[in-house]
Design a protein around this nucleic acid. Structure first.
Length: 552
RNA sequence: CUGCCCGUAGCUCAACUGGAUAGAGCAACGGCCUUCUAAGCCGUAGGUUACAGGUUCGAUUCCUGUCGGGCAGGCCA
């Protein structure tokens, strides 16, 4: 509809201007219904060219416009905006397309079925997932759903570090607990993990438990001196816990990738060789450096330490080369903002390969930190000290739906405060219930009216004339634009805000009208409208990974 | 010291990427259930958009500077 209106205006401009091809026609969605279903500021933009006042220009344009059947009328308002008002036919075509497209209403084909990967969470298996991972999980998962709705062929991927120093620390920590060394003991590893979960792993290990995760089976042999077995068991144990929590958070992955894979298949060496061959690495102080300064960094970075081991971003580059070779034309990495310094390094490494990878590939979505408050006090998150709020706690106490909504309702790059008491104590006042309640209410009415979906497709649109109805229809028609906006801005919060507004429109409408009525034609028209509303609420909640209950 | 993110109602956050009277939810106050779910609705109150300049028909949005908060700047990840 937006593009149709733009072309209507464009052809009107052709009759006014010598050359209208350079003019960018912007069709907007006014905030209030008083300003129409659509509007354009074109007359304001043309004041300089035409040297006339904008309302005069708007008048000129309107006189040249050929009316579309979907449009009832045009009005000039304010300083010179042209506002479009939908006709009954325009309104009914929106409702009808919601029914005909059903679960696909609002979706588009922008991605042309091209391969896109969303990498998210990617937590190291050194502890349970905390609320920060929860934000990453909610945003990454929702973005994957949104990109799918925009026509991309999406792969969801989780990358984890199963080698390196922190895994050794993990194994040593578990080993200490197996041997009865307490975290505050002087003999406990200095960089060890001190949380209670370490003891759980130690007990499971001592009891010869078996853990199965990602199609790998690891059995504990109980030997406190077999550090390799402890390491493998601990990683498997924590990976399993993370997967259970993520599943309870409605978050799934298509692919799990291990850092160790890139050592085993020699991709890391391949990357290092290529960087050396292309002249982007050099040796200094017994270490090997990457010239990241040639790609915008403020200093060069070490790739191979003087002890021969690699720094973390070397396998990262190998991993991203692997993503490129797998044919992902787009990659979105969802990470915490505390890792933002990796962006320059990974991109620099990829550029240094000279393989034609675009400079700004991959994309990054960084979410800012989550501050947790409880009893009006900040809960410090410290994995080593073991004091932090786990994702599991939140799912148990607040629920998956509400937790996801809280974490998604804000744009990723603003910090957010998660007040546990508020989320817990006000469970019934939670915004997500407001939206779900609208859905449940509609289901109740449709059930009692005992109508089948087919019955709703033929309705008399001329009966839907109230302001509430117009407002609701306008809102429903915005959903496709919201889905593309969320994708282009990589932010699910637009969906969350939209749903809240849509639910508000519906609740107002519901309170102002009776839906079950002896006037069957009127009843049918109204039920068609709320039936369409139900579909859109459900589609929107689906994009956020939140359930749409039929009863509450 | 340098880079990135942020600063909007008492609190938590929006604002269609430069548009019309800056909007919601909590919290406060006043109304609405013998009728389809009151987890709801209607109304009142709440603002120098951190501050100072600049760009233009027009700025919460873009530019510069200042102040304040967060995160980074390891041969840690």
């Amino acid at each position: 509809m937006k593009t149709e209106l733009a072309s209507i205006i464009s052809s009107a401009l052709d009759q006014i201007l010598d050359d209208s091809s350079t003019i960018d026609i912007h069709i907007e969605r006014p905030k209030t219904l008083e300003h129409g279903d659509y509007s354009t500021n074109i007359a304001l933009q043309l004041t300089k060219i035409l040297k006339k006042n904008p309302r005069e220009i708007a008048q000129l344009i309107i006189e040249k416009v050929g009316l579309d059947p979907s449009i009832d009328r045009l009005e000039i308002a304010g300083p010179g905006f042209i506002n479009f008002y939908l006709s009954s036919a325009g309104k009914s075509s929106i409702i009808k397309s919601i029914f005909s497209q059903s679960t696909k209403y609002g979706h588009n084909l922008t991605g042309k079925n091209q391969k896109l990967q969303v990498e998210f969470v990617s937590a190291n298996p050194t502890g349970p997932l905390h609320i920060g991972h929860g934000r990453g999980a909610a945003i990454g998962d929702s973005l994957a759903r949104i990109m799918q709705a925009n026509g991309w062929d999406v792969t969801r991927e989780f990358y984890y570090n199963d080698a390196g120093q922190q895994i050794n620390n993990l194994a040593l920590s578990v080993q200490s607990r197996i041997k009865g060394i307490e975290p505050d003991d002087a003999n406990f590893p200095e960089d060890g993990y001190r949380g209670e979960y370490i003891l759980e792993i130690a007990d499971a290990y001592s009891n010869l438990k078996t853990v199965e995760v990602d199609e790998e089976v690891v059995k504990a042999n109980g030997n406190p001196d077999d550090i390799e077995n402890i390491k493998r068991f601990s990683v498997a144990f924590l990976r399993n816990e993370q997967n259970i929590d993520l599943a309870a958070f409605q978050t799934t992955f298509d692919v799990f990738t291990l850092e160790s894979a890139f050592y085993q298949n020699k991709d890391v060496e391949k990357v290092l060789d290529l960087l050396e061959k292309n002249g982007f690495s050099y040796k200094k102080d017994d270490a090997t450096w990457l010239k990241t300064t040639e790609f915008g960094d403020d200093k060069d970075r070490v790739m191979i330490k003087s002890d021969g081991s690699y720094t973390y971003f070397v396998p990262d580059v190998a991993y991203h080369l692997n993503k490129w070779e797998r044919g992902f034309v787009r990659v979105i990495n969802e990470q915490g903002a505390d890792h933002h310094s990796t962006i320059t390094r990974v991109r620099a490494g990829l550029q240094g390969l000279n393989l034609g990878i675009p400079k700004d590939w991959p994309d990054y979505v960084l979410h800012q930190m989550v501050t947790v408050t409880k009893n009006n006090q900040e809960v410090k998150i410290s994995k080593r000290a073991g004091s932090y709020v786990t994702l599991r706690d939140l799912i148990d106490e607040v629920g998956s739906d509400a937790t996801r909504y809280f974490l998604l309702a804000r744009k990723p790059d603003s910090q957010l405060i998660f007040d546990i008491d508020l989320a817990k104590s006000q469970t019934n006042d939670n915004p997500v219930y407001y939206i779900q309640y609208a859905h449940a209410r509609i289901c109740a009415v449709l059930n009692q009216a005992n109508v089948k979906p087919e019955d709703l497709k033929n309705f008399d649109e001329a009966l839907l004339t109230s302001t509430h109805e117009h407002q609701l229809i306008k809102r429903l028609s915005e959903f496709p634009e919201i889905i593309s906006l969320s994708a282009s801005e990589s932010s699910p919060h637009y969906i969350a805000t939209f749903l809240k507004d849509l639910a508000a429109d519906f609740h107002s409408y519901y309170n102002a009208n009776k839906f079950l009525s002896d006037d069957k034609a009127l009843q049918n028209a109204r039920l068609a409208l709320i039936g369409a509303t139900k579909i859109v609420i459900k589609n929107g909640l689906q994009l956020l990974g939140i359930s749409a209950p039929e009863k509450m």
